Computed example of a mutant assay.
Amino acid sequence: MQANELVTLARSGVKLTRLGMGGAAIGGLYEACSAAAARAAVEGAWALGLRYFDTAPFYGYTLSEHRLGEALRERPRGEFTISTKAGRLMLPDASVQPGADGWAAPLPFRPHYDYTFDAILRSHQDSLQRLGMAYVDILFVHDIGAVTHGAAHAHYWAQLTTGGGFRALEQLRSSGQVKAIGLGVNEAEVVVQAMQECDLDCTLLAGRYTLLEQAALSPLLAACSRQGNAIVIGGPFNSGVLAGNGKFNYADAPDAVRQRVARLGAVCEQFGVPLQAAALQFPMAHPAVVACIPGGRDVAQMRQNAAWFEQPIPAGLWPALKQAGLVDERAPVPAP
């Protein structure tokens, strides 16, 4: 599979390249990213033929949207696809400090969860202004779910349902202001719930269907295949642990996760395959999955991601991983 191969989402007509660029890194996730490096990363992705870019107001407390817009807005708008997210309003706050929520140098805005009708519409408009663009192609509801919100989940879920958040998404889609809607989440269960409430075009699922974990195979991915809810894989390295940075779910990886990663790496090494290449290619074999969006904080990382994505992998790797109990027997694997 080629990184710059185009795929069209059946429900919306939105076109994505199989490999896209996630925008958290240029927002300064874990470590600072200069404006020059961020622009070079976006331009490097463009030079590789990548035409799908994802961002969010939360990334760098609006920094990622500003940087992505600055790097892309002079390109022909019809030649690329942008997704961003709603669910947090970013309000001015001079007390924001470096390191807040893992952002190395966030801008002086504080996130406030709000999934109501008016808040979704406002978030969308705010994103357009930060990007400096007339429209985004895909709007995802960001970070909803029981794991994210704990005891407050019922409150925020009600904002999306009876509070009109889903209705706002549907209105934006029906009016043509966005082409596709969905969720951008780290939880599989809430996507299944949302599919009963709203007609989703696609979902950005971060970290829940990867080489490290495949619990989302059922019921989520099975339901998505039936209903046409296309899956974009975010966090293919599980926040970085599969790429060697020791992070899992945006925190230090526990010992059990590190040990499993070491076992995965050992099997990959037997076949002469970088663990990162296997991690990027594995989820693409599922029929519900249309694209994968690892991040990149500079041009070298974007080039490396593309090389891993396209690297030939011996067919024997996948059955070896299954035989070792490291990959679910039910999981589709890439064709040789």
Results as ranks from 00 to 15, higher is better:
Gly296Asn: 07
Val327Asn: 08
Asp199Ile: 00
Asp199Gln: 12
Ala300Trp: 09
Leu68Val: 07
Glu5Gly: 08
Gly296Pro: 10
Gln193Ser: 07
Pro98Glu: 04
Gly316Tyr: 03
Ala37Pro: 04
Ala230His: 15
Ala154Gln: 13
His153Ile: 00
Asn229Met: 12
Arg88Ser: 04
Ala306Trp: 07
Leu205Asn: 07
Ser225Trp: 10
Leu242Tyr: 05
Ala279Met: 06
Gln304Ile: 01
Val190Met: 08
Leu131Pro: 13
Arg208Glu: 08
Ala168Leu: 07
Gly240Tyr: 07
Pro294Val: 08
Gly228Trp: 13
Gly28Trp: 02
Trp103Gln: 12
Trp157Pro: 13
Gln270Ile: 00
Leu9Ile: 14
Glu310Pro: 14
Gly246Asp: 11
Glu213Arg: 14
Gly295Leu: 10
Ala32Ser: 11
Cys268His: 10
Ala291His: 09
Ala3Ser: 15
Val42Phe: 06
Val267Asp: 07
Ile144Lys: 10
Thr162Cys: 02
Gln125Cys: 04
Phe282Glu: 01
Ile120Pro: 11
Gln193His: 04
Arg263Gly: 05
Leu29Met: 15
Gln259Thr: 10
Gln125Glu: 15
Gln304Arg: 14
Val241Phe: 06
Pro314Ser: 09
Ala266Cys: 06
Ala324Val: 06
Gly69Arg: 01
Ile293Asp: 11
Asn305Asp: 11
His66Thr: 00
Cys224Leu: 07
Gly296Lys: 08
Asp143Leu: 07
Ser127Met: 06
Val191Arg: 12
Lys15Gln: 15
Ala279Cys: 05
Ile313Ser: 08
Arg330Lys: 14
Leu220Val: 10
Glu269Thr: 08
Gln227Ser: 14
Gly235Val: 10
Tyr250Pro: 13
Arg258Phe: 00
Gln159Ile: 00
Gly265Phe: 10
Met133Lys: 04
Met90Lys: 04
Gly78Arg: 11
Gly176Lys: 04
Thr210Met: 01
Arg258Met: 10
Leu317Gly: 06
His124Gln: 03
Ile82Pro: 08
Gly23His: 09
Phe53Leu: 01
Ile231Pro: 12
Val290Pro: 14
Ser95Pro: 06
Arg122Phe: 05
Thr210Pro: 03
Thr17Gly: 13
Ala262Tyr: 08
Val192Glu: 06
Arg11Cys: 08
Ala36Tyr: 01
Gln97Asp: 00
Val257Pro: 05
Met302Ser: 01
Phe248Glu: 05
Arg303Val: 00
